[in-house]
Computed example of a mutant assay.
Amino acid sequence: MTTKNQLLAVTGLSPQVVTETLFALHQQGEPLPEAIHILTTAEGYQRARLTLINDGWLGRFYDDYQLPKPAFSEQHIHVLEQADRTPLTDIRSQADNQAMADGITEWIRQLTEAPDTTLHVSIAGGRKTMGFYAGYALSLYGRPQDRLSHVLVSADYESHPQFYYPTPYSQVIYGNDPSRKPLDTQNAEVILADIAFVRLRHGLDQALLEGKSSFSSSVAMAQQALNPPHLIIAVKARELIANGKRIKLSPADLSFYLWLLHRQQTDQMAPTCPSDGAPDSDYAAEYLNHYRAINGELGGVDRTLSHLQNGMSKSFFEQRKSRINKILKANLHQAAQAYLIIPVGRRPQTRYQITLQKEQIHYQQEING
């Protein structure tokens, strides 16, 4: 059974950021997570296990505030790994840095996979780079319901090894500095600071959302989707290369797409769909110029010529348009919009065009049309 509300905390040598985050949520009257996950290093694992579980600080928080306890055990403390699957002890090299980034990205991808869950990522603990990658990974995979935060703790209590949350009763600890002044944990202030982030999930390829991916691959895919539209037409290969992705089309479909682009690039009016029972012979002639150039180069003849011998019909026009758009959406997802054949204007004068500009289109091999 999928846990709907989950907290993922990035921690290093200060596992108390978990209980501080939980206290802040409770203080603000917000729902507490049903499950808690921790991402950390090998030493961070020992600290989290010994303090939160063995020493009972997590259970103590829930008992103090009489709250139902979440799913949390040693299995919820995840040690980031090096490329050879050995536990990551610290981030000391570029390889460590890459392994950490990939590990954090993969965990956040998994925890955002189920559509009916909510993920709250806390970046209060661990090295700054760990927090950065957690925030960036949530930007890549986060959904509208997901959240990113940091906890702010009053100076005397921040990073204090004996402070885990403001208690509902008086408890004295001593300052973590030469003064050793007495402090009452009841008086500590903990504030949850939400961090706004840009959600780029719509720009990721479905394969990255469904399968394991490195941090660099995820970033590259999101960047590709955000780049200005650019189309390369590879006539001989019968491909469109949109945003760097190769999309195979049949000669009939590619010819239709090229026909529309050619009309736009030669400043002709965008075509309307032929009326039912009234095939358009001019459209058919223009289209066949492109089709013959492609088909003659590749060899072979199909049923396209016979379908157009009396002109371009409404069904032919709509089938080509729908099939091309379906292929573009399947390959480009949200990034497909700029390349789709879209309707412009109201019926019965609706015309169809592709919104790309001339400078965004490049032909690997020109054809006559």
Rank of each mutant, 00 (worst) to 15 (best):
V172P: 01
L192W: 04
V172F: 01
I191Y: 12
I191C: 07
E189G: 08
Y165D: 01
I173D: 14
I191N: 12
H202T: 06
D205H: 06
R201K: 10
V190C: 12
P178A: 11
Q186N: 09
L208M: 11
Y165Q: 10
L192Y: 00
A193I: 03
A196K: 00
V172W: 07
A193C: 08
I173K: 10
T167P: 02
E189L: 14
T185W: 05
Y169N: 13
D194C: 14
L208Y: 09
R180N: 14
I195S: 08
A193V: 02
T185K: 07
L208Q: 09
G175I: 04
K181D: 12
G203H: 12
F197R: 07
P182R: 15
A193Y: 11
Y174G: 14
S179D: 13
P166T: 04
I173T: 15
V198D: 05
Y174V: 11
Y165L: 08
L209T: 03
D177F: 06
G203S: 12
Q206H: 10
R180P: 08
V190G: 11
D177A: 14
A196D: 03
L183N: 13
A188T: 13
A196Q: 03
V190R: 08
D205V: 03
P168G: 09
I195W: 09
I173H: 09
D205F: 01
L200S: 08
L183I: 11
E210V: 00
V198F: 08
D194E: 11
V198N: 03
A188Q: 04
S179F: 01
G203R: 11
A207G: 13
Q206V: 11
R180A: 06
I191A: 09
S170I: 15
R199A: 13
R180Y: 07
Y174R: 06
L200F: 12
P178C: 08
S170P: 15
A188C: 15
R180D: 09
T167W: 10
V198Q: 04
V198R: 13
P182S: 05
R180T: 14
V172G: 00
L209H: 05
F197E: 01
E210F: 00
R201V: 01
R201G: 04
L208E: 07
R199P: 13
L183S: 03
Y169W: 15
N176M: 04
N187A: 03
K181W: 06
Q186K: 10
P182M: 05
S170V: 05
L192S: 07
D205N: 03
L208I: 13
V198P: 00
P168N: 06
N176W: 09
V190I: 12
E189Y: 03
D194I: 02
Y165W: 05
L204D: 01
R201A: 10
P178T: 02
P166N: 07
V198K: 05
D194Q: 13
E189N: 15
Y174H: 05
E189A: 04
Y174M: 12
Q171F: 13
A207F: 00
R199E: 03
R199G: 03
E210I: 00
A207Y: 00
Q171H: 12
Y169R: 05
S179L: 09
A188W: 08
F197Q: 05
L208C: 15
V172C: 07
Q186H: 06
L208D: 15
